[in-house]
């Protein structure tokens, strides 16, 4: 069913939860980061306790590619942050990046490189200057499954959410494309 080139990455398993619950303050920090780096793509992680599926600690990462159409964690920063997660009994709950001129949907590049089957892949589109499109996906073995994003903040004014557009479709999306 799925034939996107995945650089040999496969296996692992998605979590059972099919929703990303995330605190509003973290979404705000992510949006601030991707806006700051626009028109380059921005990327980062939200860590949380192992097994909790709860993102609690926002870690903006450097985009070593410094590109409007590509992102890559700096390899040394990646090592340092992943070790820190280990030391703190945390794991990457959310891996996010921005698309600065296209929709917040995983590109074939995103799908090919997705190497953390347990993570929520959060995409933020900054193509509109006054609103962000924020969507979340599971990417496992080249298969993309969109999931709802639930903002967790009882105190928040619901009107404040209007600057963000959360879209999702329930279906699993399968890509087919030729190999490299």
């Amino acid at each position: 069913m799925v034939t996107v080139a995945t650089f040999g990455w496969a296996g692992g398993g998605a979590r059972l939860d099919d929703v990303l619950s995330i605190d509003r303050s973290i979404i705000d920090a992510i949006v601030a980061h991707v806006r700051r780096d626009h028109p380059d793509e921005a990327c980062g992680v939200v860590a949380g306790p192992v097994g909790s599926d709860t993102p609690t600690r926002h870690i903006p990462m450097e985009n070593a590619a410094r590109s409007m159409t590509f992102y890559e964690f700096d390899s040394m920063e990646h090592l340092r942050v992943w070790r820190e997660l280990d030391d703190r009994d945390e794991e990457p709950i959310v891996i996010y990046h921005s698309h600065t001129a296209t929709e917040a949907y995983p590109s074939r590049t995103d799908i090919s490189f997705a190497g953390e089957p347990g993570a929520h892949y959060l995409l933020v589109s900054t193509r509109e200057p006054d609103a962000e499109e924020i969507r979340s996906y599971r990417i496992v073995d080249g298969a993309v499954t969109e999931e709802p994003v639930r903002i967790v903040d009882a105190a928040v004014d619901p009107n404040a959410v209007q600057s963000y557009m959360f879209g999702q479709s329930p279906a699993t999306v399968d890509y087919e494309c030729s190999d490299r």
Partner: peptide
């Protein structure tokens, strides 16, 4: 230590 690179983006593959 082995880590899969975290990479992607809007660009074509």
């Amino acid at each position: 230590t082995i880590l899969p690179a975290v990479a992607g983006g809007a660009f074509g593959f």
